[in-house]
Amino acid sequence: MRSTRLSLALDSGAIALPETGQIAVLSPQAGDDLSALPKDRIVVVTGFKPDHDHFNARGFVCATAMPADCVAALVCLPRAKAGARALLAAACAALPSGAPVIVDGQKTDGVDSMLKDLRARVEVGEVVAKAHGRIFAFPAGAALSDWAAVPHAFDGFQTLPGVFSADGPDRGSEMLAAALPRKLPSRVVDLGAGWGYLSRRILQCDGVKELHLVEADLTALDCARQNITDPRAHFHWADATLWQVPHLAGAVVCNPPFHTGREADPALGLAFIRAASRMLAPDGTLWLVANRHLPYDPLLRTTFREVEDIGGDGVFRLVRAAHPNRRAGG
């Protein structure tokens, strides 16, 4: 869909690229087709590790921050409005005044609302509508400076726009934090650690000597570094479903994501459960919170010898799963 709109906009002249210089592509998703752009001029800018690895493996130059010498930017609009605004402000700040900032997004991700907001602030060029989305461009400048990312502080934590649950801990994490035992094993993994809410609770448990925070979103992980200053904490920017634990852990604590788009994707949470089982020692335990409607139980009972519900409510289920079954294949 992105490739169709981009090709149409470039071929029709609705959007024009500078003839030379680097073009930053901000926050594309794995599988996005960028072939309408000159590959030798593209810098893929993303802090989401699976997307970073996807484009890097396909020969694209990748970065986690926008280089200062780019002459244009394509912003692949994320769904979170505050995060999208911050991304557009960052693109404008990094580009020369007047350089094209191209915005591409699906209607379901709020592109119409963003277009309306931008028209009130900048001169938006021709809009191309195709494949349930829109693409358009505007000149970089200072008009969006007040959209720049501003840290949000609460209860001793700091977050940034665009990270999951940026306004405070989600209900599932709060429930899991309250359900953790007073004592945990010496080596613990917080799988999908986000900005560190569960990690702080884990470090308050007796017995913990080493905590590994594994998070794919670099912005969230950077927030966690600010929030968790305990020397027992080790930070890993990684795809949680692929990360290799240095030494088998006694416990994994996990509130796995279950969306890759607007619709729920149970496969993502299932991949987290498999990964957790591979990280655990033979007597290790997974502490998990998940939405009740997700079909995790068959895999949990195949992958672990002991599975028990330890609480929850009408929406969330708290699970303790112990003794991973190696013969199940993780």
Rank of each mutant, 00 (worst) to 15 (best):
A142P: 06
A142Y: 12
A142G: 05
A142S: 15
S145E: 15
S145R: 13
D146V: 07
W147V: 05
A149N: 09
P151Q: 12
P151C: 12
P151S: 10
H152W: 12
D155Q: 15
G156C: 10
F157A: 05
T159Q: 06
P161Y: 11
P169E: 03
S173T: 09
A177Q: 02
A179L: 01
A179Q: 04
L180R: 01
P181Y: 10
V188I: 05
V188T: 02
V188Y: 00
D190P: 03
L191D: 01
A193F: 02
W195F: 14
W195M: 10
R200A: 06
R200G: 02
R201E: 04
I202N: 00
L203E: 04
Q204N: 09
C205T: 07
G207Q: 03
E210F: 07
E210G: 00
E210K: 02
L211T: 00
L213W: 06
V214L: 09
V214P: 04
A216F: 10
L218Y: 08
T219Q: 10
D222R: 13
Q226P: 01
Q226S: 11
Q226C: 12
D230Y: 11
P231M: 12
A233V: 12
H234W: 12
F235L: 08
L242R: 15
L242D: 10
L242V: 10
L242E: 15
V245M: 15
P246H: 15
P246C: 13
A249Y: 07
G250E: 01
V252C: 13
C254K: 05
N255V: 09
F258K: 04
H259T: 04
G261F: 09
G261R: 14
R262H: 14
E263L: 14
E263Q: 14
A264S: 12
A264M: 11
A267R: 15
L268T: 07
G269A: 13
F272S: 10
S277D: 04
R278C: 12
M279C: 13
M279V: 09
L280P: 02
